[in-house]
Design a protein around this nucleic acid. Structure first.
Lengths: 116, 116
DNA sequence: CTGTATCCCTTTAGATACTG
DNA sequence: CAGTATCTAAAGGGATACAG
């Protein structure tokens, strides 16, 4: 959400400041199962360019949601993983996925059940 | 998420297509408590211009998440409310708000409890 | 392999004035 | 009050080439 923070004390807005970026939920979703290398993430999200993927990863790293580990090898190898803070988002990520499934199968007023 | 749909069958991406817009979660959050008039929404989200607010409301309406009711009065009155489909998002909206609160108070590995 | 550096076009969004 | 129209500035994002 970037620049102006209307009600910076609103929890929803604070959360969105971290995960509201165009690709961040998807990236976090990819990383929620395994730590992944740069190329692995890119394969799973083919529509994102390397440039933009790099930018998003840098922001997620700066916000403490993911961790970047660089191995001194040739060819180079870099691995991204959720931090503990990032892992605390997993239920929310699962919820986002679960919502669509639930709505498809049930009446839309139904309470959505969080997957375990 | 607009143009290219890499894995359109991914539930997370489908959900984000509906609520991933820059202001949509905030707007839905405002409407989750009451139906609101255009100006009331704008007051609660001062940083969004009328033009952009209009655009976002139109998209939410087109996606069936909100309902626009125009009263034939002077001065004009228009009220926006969540549809049943939109209401099915309320737990997710609450979850987004709850996450930040939970993380502040607890260890980041803790499972977040959905508010009732 | 994992990026960075440019270039350049597209999209977004603010300001302002105007309408029913 | 609730928008629409227009113009413009800024940000976003793709393509390509290059670097460590």
């Amino acid at each position: 959400m970037g620049n102006n923070l209307y009600h910076a004390d609103c929890p929803a807005i604070e959360t969105l400041a971290l995960i509201g970026g165009r690709w961040k939920v998807i990236i976090l979703h990819v990383l929620s199962k395994h730590a992944r290398r740069f190329g692995e993430i890119n394969v799973r999200i083919p529509s994102i360019s390397r440039k933009v993927l790099t930018e998003q990863l840098r922001e997620l790293e700066a916000d403490g949601l993911i961790n970047r580990k660089q191995y001194k090898e040739h060819p180079q190898k870099v691995e991204y993983a959720l931090t503990d803070f990032g892992k605390s988002l997993c239920p929310l990520l699962a919820y986002i996925s679960a919502w669509k499934k639930n709505v498809e199968g049930n009446s839309s007023q139904d309470i959505i059940q969080l997957p375990d």
